[in-house]
């Protein structure tokens, strides 16, 4: 005879299974399965008409590692993502502190201001940036008036970076705000009381205590940036290739299209992400200690 506690435990287990099943099925069908397909495709061959031939090969990976087009795209994307993340952090942290330290009744409106851009389609907002950065756009008109003259802003890597930072900043600010809002600023007074100057107090107390927000924000910004292709196409003018642009082209527009090579690039991108994020967690958790 099972004890009441055992019966209870069994019932809890059944309930848990019932609750988790829909989610698990969803993930299996729409997340795990496509991943497996991509992974398998990455080892297949492409024929001259862009059809997948089920002939196992490592050629896709060899191509990626040996042709500068692909190697450069990886470096460019990684570097741009790091830069975007760091700049978002540098802008987002003070911003989040400012909001968290505002009078109670101002905080929600300020957060709403951060969120309002989401009410408009991302593409539309990026097109708006085209207007701002264009040769006869708002900034250049202004520069001309004050006598500096027009600059080439649109269709540069700088424009891509600006667009990325603009688009990703909210994803940095929100987790940072959540962490900083929970931070008890009395601790900064305590640190000052014990002889720490502002910088020391920040590095020793506030930074480690808000690290979860920094990590969450960085990951949220870094991952989509690594694979993005829209911003570099619309603001960067597709002049240089980022990972996302290459993958998108290989899948949809190349002549012939090349799903196996595109898959291999995607698999490698996930690997890069995995490695970088693990390194990041290692470093930041040390910081926390």
């Amino acid at each position: 005879m099972a004890t009441i506690q055992q019966q209870q435990q069994r019932r809890d287990r059944i309930r848990l299974a019932l609750l988790l099943t829909p989610g698990l099925l969803w993930l299996l069908l729409f997340f795990a399965l496509p991943l497996v397909i991509i992974f398998l495709y990455s080892f297949m061959t492409n024929d001259a008409l862009g059809r997948v031939v089920y002939e196992p090969t490592l050629n896709n990976y060899i191509t990626i590692f040996t042709q500068s087009l692909y190697v450069n795209a990886y470096w460019r994307s990684i570097w741009t993502s790091v830069l975007t993340t760091v700049i978002c952090l540098l802008i987002g942290y003070p911003l989040a502190v400012f909001i968290a330290r505002s009078p109670q009744q101002w905080r929600m409106p300020l957060l709403m201001l951060i969120l309002i851009p989401f009410w408009t389609n991302f593409l539309v907002r990026i097109y708006a940036w085209q207007i701002i950065l264009a040769n006869n756009g708002i900034i250049n008109s202004f520069l001309e008036i004050i006598g500096i003259g027009r600059l080439t802003l649109l269709n540069t890597e700088g424009a891509t970076l600006i667009g990325l930072i603009y688009g990703e900043l909210p994803f940095m600010v929100l987790p940072l705000y959540a962490a900083i809002d929970r931070f008890d600023f009395t601790l900064m007074e305590a640190a000052a009381d014990l002889g720490a100057n502002k910088v020391q107090a920040f590095l020793r107390i506030m930074l480690p205590m808000t690290m979860p927000g920094i990590v969450a924000g960085s990951v949220l910004v870094f991952i989509p940036t690594l694979g993005q292709f829209v911003v570099s196409e619309l603001l960067g003018g597709a002049k240089v290739d980022y990972l996302g642009n290459l993958i998108q082209r290989l899948f949809l527009r190349a002549n012939p299209i090349n799903w196996p090579l595109g898959s291999a690039m995607a698999v490698l991108m996930m690997l890069v992400l995995l490695v970088l994020i693990m390194m990041y967690f290692r470093v930041t958790s040390e910081e926390e200690r």
Partner: peptide
């Protein structure tokens, strides 16, 4: 003179211990 340069220390009502 800022707090970190004053020869006094404080025990806060909430203690304000560093949780980490």
């Amino acid at each position: 003179t800022p707090p970190h340069l004053r020869p006094v220390n404080t025990v806060f009502q909430s203690y304000a211990l560093f949780p980490h």
